[in-house]
């Protein structure tokens, strides 16, 4: 263990304060009784109640959830398939190009992704709305899923699938009965990641949505331009909560699996030694 030093403690405190103070202030002010954001007038949950009566926000919330669930589910299926192909196919002509192309959207500026998708949708004459946001979100979150799943697949022992084939499974059954259950934690993490990415995307959604569909981040952004209201604080607090839960669950799912496996393996070693 390193010794305690004032310098380390101070940098740590400042760093975390910088990261989390704004969010903490936002959360505190969402419980402010006053209409004025800058004046504290006692504790109240009335803005949460207001929020529930605000049709526009509720609509936006519904759109956001719909988009997030559908796009992350499609992205999980496609991303998993892409990961399997990339990990399994071995060498083929243009492999590096292919894997590069799967990962490129990870680093592509969102503005460019959004703009190019917008041009595409206009080009093929697709009416912008929930569908186009779903397509856009699927496109970029699929890459994240495939990164998460392929890192798990790399360590997957392929003789397990062969054993399943040997025992009479068709290739599809082997995947469904053996591979999928084993890589499930990675697939679930991938889904949660895609879900949270979709939930807090503003830029791509703004480019690809039309008048019929507004997501929550878009709604927040547009209302803040008219001035910050305590309702927005309440809404943001809820979103912070959801995203936090999502991220923590994703990491717990994969961590607890690793930890359990290690614990049980140690137990097995003791057993066989004794």
């Amino acid at each position: 263990m390193r010794r305690f030093s004032w310098f380390n403690a101070t940098s740590l405190t400042l760093g975390f304060a910088f990261l989390y103070l704004p969010m903490i202030i936002l959360i505190i002010y969402s419980f402010n009784a006053s209409k004025l954001v800058t004046v504290w007038a006692g504790f109240s949950t009335k803005w949460y109640g207001e929020l529930l009566r605000n049709e526009a926000f509720l609509d936006a919330a519904w759109v956001t959830i719909k988009v997030a669930v559908i796009s992350s589910s499609i992205a999980t299926v496609l991303g998993t398939m892409a990961a399997i192909v990339m990990v399994r196919s071995g060498r083929f002509l243009g492999r590096t190009l292919f894997s590069g192309m799967i990962y490129a959207p990870l680093v592509m500026p969102e503005v460019i992704t959004g703009l190019s998708l917008l041009l595409l949708f206009i080009g093929i004459g697709l009416d912008r709305g929930v569908l186009t946001i779903v397509l856009a979100h699927t496109t970029f979150s699929m890459c994240y899923v495939s990164v998460v799943v392929s890192s798990r697949l790399v360590s997957f022992d392929q003789s397990l699938e062969e054993a399943a084939l040997d025992l009479g499974c068709s290739p599809l059954q082997a995947f469904h009965l053996v591979t999928l259950p084993i890589i499930a934690p990675a697939v679930i993490s991938g889904w949660l990641l895609a879900f949270t990415l979709s939930l807090d995307d503003l830029v791509i959604a703004s480019f690809t949505s039309g008048p019929s569909a507004t997501t929550l981040p878009m709604k927040i952004w547009s209302s803040v331009r008219l001035g910050v209201s305590p309702e927005i604080n309440a809404l943001s607090t809820i979103m912070i909560g959801i995203v936090t839960i999502g991220v923590i669950t994703a990491s717990l799912v994969s961590k607890s699996n690793v930890a359990r496996q290690q614990r049980e393996e140690r137990a097995a070693e003791r057993l066989s030694a004794g």
Binding site: D157, S159, L160, E162, A163, A164, D166, L167, S170, V178
Partner: peptide, 16 residues
């Protein structure tokens, strides 16, 4: 493989 009347015990065991 799944249509062959052959079973194999893998050197790495390959237990599920």
């Amino acid at each position: 493989p799944n249509k062959r009347a052959v079973n194999m015990m893998f050197q790495s065991y390959a237990l599920f």
